[in-house]
Simulated assay, not measured.
Amino acid sequence: MDLIEKFDAKGKTGAGYHVEVYQDDEGTLPRVKSYKLKDGRSLEPLSDAKFRIVQTGEKIYRL
Rank of each mutant, 00 (worst) to 15 (best):
D2H: 12
D2A: 14
L3T: 05
L3W: 02
E5M: 06
K6I: 14
K6Y: 07
F7A: 03
D8L: 15
K10N: 06
K10F: 03
G11H: 01
G11Q: 02
G11E: 08
K12G: 14
T13Y: 15
A15W: 13
Y17H: 06
H18M: 04
H18E: 08
V19G: 07
V19P: 03
V19R: 07
V19L: 05
E20S: 08
E20N: 04
V21T: 12
V21W: 01
Y22F: 03
Q23L: 07
D24W: 10
D24A: 14
E26M: 14
E26P: 06
G27D: 06
T28P: 13
L29W: 07
L29N: 13
L29K: 13
L29E: 01
R31Q: 04
R31A: 01
R31D: 06
R31Y: 13
V32F: 11
S34L: 09
K36V: 12
K36N: 07
K36F: 09
K36S: 04
K36H: 00
L37Q: 03
L37F: 08
L37Y: 14
K38A: 01
K38F: 03
K38P: 00
D39V: 12
D39A: 04
G40K: 06
G40T: 05
S42F: 04
L43Q: 10
E44M: 07
E44V: 13
E44D: 07
E44G: 06
L46C: 12
S47W: 05
S47Q: 05
S47I: 00
D48Y: 09
D48V: 10
A49D: 00
A49F: 15
A49I: 15
K50V: 09
K50P: 03
K50L: 09
F51D: 09
F51G: 00
R52Y: 15
R52K: 15
I53A: 02
V54Q: 09
T56P: 07
T56K: 10
T56D: 08
G57K: 04
G57T: 08
G57V: 07
E58T: 13
K59I: 11
K59P: 11
I60P: 00
Y61A: 12
Y61P: 09
Y61N: 06
R62F: 05
R62T: 12
L63K: 08
L63P: 14
L63W: 14
L63Q: 12
